[in-house]
Write a protein that binds this DNA or RNA. Structure first.
Lengths: 137, 137
DNA sequence: GTTTATGCAAATTCTTTGCAATACT
DNA sequence: AGTATTGCAAAGAATTTGCATAAAC
């Protein structure tokens, strides 16, 4: 299905060890990851800066997106697990477990229309639900 | 209505200049503020650390809450502007303007019920809408 | 008078930048 | 070969901690 190499190629990015491992980690874990999460878990040891720059590049190329988090940590997740890259789901729904701290994407949930006050233009919506996940019950 | 002194007293907190000014700033601006926002705008010059600790104390006492932000900055807003301190506090709806960067609370909007997958327990929900506010149009 | 908050110094963590060396296409 | 990425050093934010002084109750 989705291989790290294919993902990089489809975003016209050069294939490097660091990038491959980061993407692999996102695919494996399937939860939102922060820079320090990656720094700790990547098998190979990469420079902190390299990981920062990889994340920035991925953000710029819409390969990952930021996931809201209340802890102050900046977390990221892969965009559109499926194939539709252009579809640009500007709606993000995530669940963060207060016990284990893991943030997962709730794929199936669609956000209702929100009617904003006059003069406000909506471009993007993110819903973060916090509670306890099934693993921690 | 809501005076900084009354707010501190009702939360059983000592009344100090720094705390009063921080609360006054939240009341005046009525937008989510970060530590550095406060550091820049408070009339009196307080130590960075004092502001950090005031915010932490306010968080602990549920006088303020964190407001989600994609920029990495940790922002805060007063809890329950009105008097109703009951259940509504567990739903936050905010609008962040991509142009001016200001985050405002959308009081009137109520979040729809979200049905989580089995095993997930919901405790809190935060919706962040991003776009352009009326001032920036 | 006791308790709590403040200011200062300093330590940590988080993130960015410049530059030469290296790897990718 | 030419361009982009990496690693290293170092700078700059953001946040936390310890301790003596000062302020609040």
């Amino acid at each position: 299905m989705q291989s790290p190499i294919a993902i990089l190629q489809s975003h016209k990015l050069r294939i490097t060890d660091c990038r491959l491992e980061i993407i692999q980690e996102f695919l494996d874990k399937n939860i939102a990851l922060s820079h320090s999460d990656l720094e700790e878990t990547l098998k190979q040891q990469f420079d902190r800066v390299t990981i920062y720059r990889s994340l920035k590049t991925f953000l710029d190329k819409d390969l990952i997106h930021k996931v809201l988090d209340d802890s102050g940590a900046t977390k990221y997740a892969l965009c559109s697990h499926g194939e539709t890259v252009h579809d640009h789901s500007h709606e993000h729904v995530h669940f963060k477990c207060e016990t284990c701290g893991e943030t997962t994407c709730l794929e199936d949930i669609t956000l209702p229309q929100v009617k904003l006050p006059a003069g406000f233009e909506k471009k993007e919506m993110s819903l973060l639900v916090q509670g306890v996940c099934e693993k921690c019950h």
